[in-house]
Each structure stands twice: as structure tokens, then as C-alpha cells.
């Protein structure tokens, strides 16, 4: 795990995330959101979870971010600008970050270097999905179906 790569990705991700949270234009914020997700996916690659990184890229950048862009384009009416950060929200966010950071620094047991582990192959993921995690998998499938139908119904009622 190279530290230079880590620092680079961290800076990229956090800058993009901050931009997503504060930029005025909705479209700009969405695009920086996508960049932040690329950063997170790069973290996953760095951590040796290539499959999850790829899934993140496909699902988030390929589907969710594109979906958001479509939504923005479809509902052009009052979308455009939104206020940036307001004080109470920023204060609360900084406070949460301070608290979490303090807690993380305080906990000595997490200051460890990465151990050596077996490479995570897609085969292993697939086996785990089909054995120990088969029920969650089914539930997620059901949930996705429900979400799909729900989304359709929501949009269709508008049409009527």
C-alpha cells in the first residue's frame, strides 16, 4: 500500500466531497460527487477489494450519478442554484468530524499496519454470496425489485 498514492487519493476525494457539499450549482455538485466516488473506489482498489471498487464504479458512477444528472435535466424548473453551507449545519458537521477524529485518535487499537491477507478473488466473493450470505442476497434482490416497482409507480402517478 503506497502512502503517496494514499495521500493523493485522500486529497482528491476530500476536496471533491467538500466541493459536492458546498458548490452552488447543482450540476457542479453532482459531478464533484462523482469524482469523490471515484476516489472512494480508488481506496477500495488500494485496500485490495477490486470487486467492490468496480461495483462502486458501475453502480454509483454508472447508474446513480447518471440518474441524478438525468433528474436534474428532467426537472429543470427551479433547479440551478442552492445555497451553500449554512452556519448551523457547518458547525454541526465540524463538531461531528472533531468528535469522530478525536475518538479515532484516542483508540490505540486501530493504529495498526495492514496485515498480509489472501487476495480476495471474485470466486471467493461468489462462494460467500451463494453460501453464508444467500439470504441477505435474496432480500437485497427483493428490495431492488420493490424499489424498481415503487419508483415506477411514483413516476407513473404523476403522468396520470
Amino acid at each position: 500500500m503506497s502512502s503517496a498514492a494514499f495521500v493523493l487519493i485522500a486529497i482528491l476525494t476530500l476536496a471533491a466531497a467538500l466541493a459536492a457539499a458546498t458548490l452552488q450549482k447543482l450540476m457542479h455538485a453532482t459531478l464533484s460527487f462523482a469524482v469523490a466516488l471515484v476516489g472512494v473506489a480508488a481506496f477500495f482498489f488500494l485496500l485490495g477489494a477490486e470487486f467492490v471498487g468496480l461495483v462502486l464504479v458501475f453502480v454509483y458512477i454508472g447508474a446513480v450519478a447518471v440518474l441524478i444528472v438525468f433528474t436534474i435535466l428532467l426537472t429543470r424548473r427551479d433547479v440551478g442554484k442552492d445555497r451553500g453551507a449554512n452556519w448551523s449545519g457547518a458547525l454541526l458537521a465540524v463538531a461531528v468530524f472533531g468528535g469522530l477524529g478525536w475518538a479515532v485518535f484516542k483508540t490505540q487499537s486501530v493504529a495498526i499496519a495492514a496485515p498480509h491477507i489472501r487476495a480476495l478473488t471474485v470466486k471467493r466473493i461468489g462462494e460467500a454470496l451463494m453460501t453464508s450470505y444467500v439470504w441477505p442476497l435474496q432480500c437485497v434482490g427483493l428490495l431492488l425489485t420493490a424499489a424498481l416497482i415503487g419508483a415506477l409507480v411514483l413516476v407513473m402517478e404523476e403522468k396520470r
Binding site: T13, L14, A17, L18, A20, A21, T22, A36, V40, A85, G89, A90, L92, A93, V94, V96, F97, L100, G101
Partner: peptide, 8 residues
């Protein structure tokens, strides 16, 4: 930090 940005 990412979480806080999302919260913000």
C-alpha cells in the same frame, strides 16, 4: 471527513 462532508 467524508462522512462529515456528507452530513454538511
Amino acid at each position: 471527513a467524508l462522512f462529515s462532508a456528507g452530513l454538511l
